[in-house]
């Protein structure tokens, strides 16, 4: 009986995982955004970056992450709200996008959220930047959390593109 109970427990949690999503939530100003927790590799404090020439303003440069060079994207600048003036309190969330690792510069990491997949809403049509950069919207404690589309965020980094 014991083993059976154990089995039930496992399958229960698997079922829960299949239907829900864990997010890392972070803030830019007043707004909260989230990315799926499985894509996050590391969270580190802002410690400067070497600027890259001939790139768009939202590419803050590159950092050394244990021997590999990782680009840092300024999410605020990506949303067209001007460059962040980073301090030691700002945070870089290192994530994997496909085969590549990238860092996203945000103001702070706020929470880990578990949301049901059924609670994800589509992004309303309107501002093209919003629809381009967000995968969807969820509500958490009556606040809107935008789900970041990482592929869209890191694309178009070159000056000419």
């Amino acid at each position: 009986m014991e083993s059976l109970a154990f089995k039930d427990d496992i399958s229960g949690s698997v079922a829960a995982a299949a239907n829900s999503l864990q997010l890392i939530a972070f803030s830019i100003g007043e707004q909260t955004y989230g990315v799926e927790i499985t894509t996050v590799r590391e969270i580190r404090a802002w410690n400067g970056a070497t600027p890259l020439p001939n790139t768009r303003e939202f590419v803050r440069g590159v950092i050394n992450l244990r021997g590999t060079i990782v680009p840092i994207f300024d999410l605020r600048a990506r949303f067209g709200e001007g460059q962040t003036s980073p301090t030691k309190n700002h945070v870089v969330v290192v994530m994997s996008v496909g085969e590549k690792w990238v860092g996203i510069l945000v103001d702070a990491v706020s929470d880990i959220l578990t949301v049901a997949k059924t609670d994800i809403h589509n992004v309303p049509e309107g501002n093209s930047i919003d629809t381009e950069l967000l995968n969807g919207i969820v509500t958490h404690e009556s606040r809107m959390v935008g789900l970041i589309d990482l592929h869209a965020v890191v694309s178009g980094a070159k000056m000419d593109s």
């Binding site: 070497t50 790139t55 590159v62 060079i69 680009p71 070159k158």
Partner: peptide, 26 residues
């Protein structure tokens, strides 16, 4: 170090390297 590994190639830059102080130089 390759820039393409996690990013893409940039005009006028052949790659990156990591200096003794841990910073990246192009």
């Amino acid at each position: 170090k390759s820039l393409e590994e996690n990013f893409q190639s940039i005009e006028g830059i052949a790659g990156g390297t990591i200096l003794g102080d841990g910073n990246v130089a192009l």
